[in-house]
Amino acid sequence: MDSESLTQPDVQQEMGIALVALQRRNKTIQQIKIAGVWVALVAVLTGGLLLLHIEPGYMLQHYNIILQGAWTTIYVSFVSILIATAIALAGSIARLSSNSIAQGVSGFYVSLLRGTPLLIQIYVIYLGLPQIGQQLTELGFPTIGRMFILDAIPAGILALSLNYGAYMTEIFRAGLQSISHGQREAAIALGMTPWQVMRRVILPQAIRIIIPDVGNQFIAMQKDSALVSVMGVWEITYLANRYARRDSKYMEMFLVGAAAYWILTIISSWLQGRLEKRMGRAYER
């Protein structure tokens, strides 16, 4: 009896360890199987394309052109997501404020920018604004007028920032609202001012909730940045299109372009996962 009760916990522990090892092994096998399916799908696609006389040689010769465009895509998306984040932060605080002007302005902005296509916003900023600039110049304000004439890349960044800023304002608002009212009460009861409460208590907690969504927005933006090719910005899509037309190698060039976006988003997803893990530190038991 005595010896039995002594050994029992050991046996249980060993069984537990064995069970965990078994589960881990099953999971690894599962992952290997999934990877196998991916490899098979890529092989089938490649095989099919080769049968259709796609020229892999042409693709290999021209992938470095796309690579140059990738830097522009990364640059435009990265700057835009930073500006959009700043807009979203201000916009969400305005939406939640009790000030009716702040609420009105931010609500109007979100509605307008979410309610119209990004492509039209790009056209308005790149092609429409210079018209206003011209009129201002005629009215005798050439310095202000010149500010309305934007180069393609700044115009693209402005359009992407404003558009994504509107969507992200809503994401930030939901994130801020998800922090329990007790947190705010505890902070103000300690004598913290509304600004300190936001900066030190609400925002750090909300950011953890917001980060995955910002990551998703960044991934979406990398692909939406293809739209700035309409202004002749030499990013992935523009370059793919240019060489595709010149050499009539549409499938080849657009596949290389698509692959470039795909690789970018895979890298971004991986970075996003790491960031989320780091932000979750305080919540591990």
Binding site: E185, A186, A187, A189, G191, M192, Q205, A282
Partner: peptide, 29 residues
């Protein structure tokens, strides 16, 4: 805020700041 700083309050649901450690919770204010 200035007046509240002179009055301590303890809540039913604790309302500790979950993103801060025990000591950080205490030294924040």
């Amino acid at each position: 805020s200035r007046q509240r700083a002179e009055i301590g309050m303890v809540f039913q649901r604790f309302n500790l700041f979950p993103h801060l450690t025990a000591i950080e919770n205490i030294i924040e204010a």
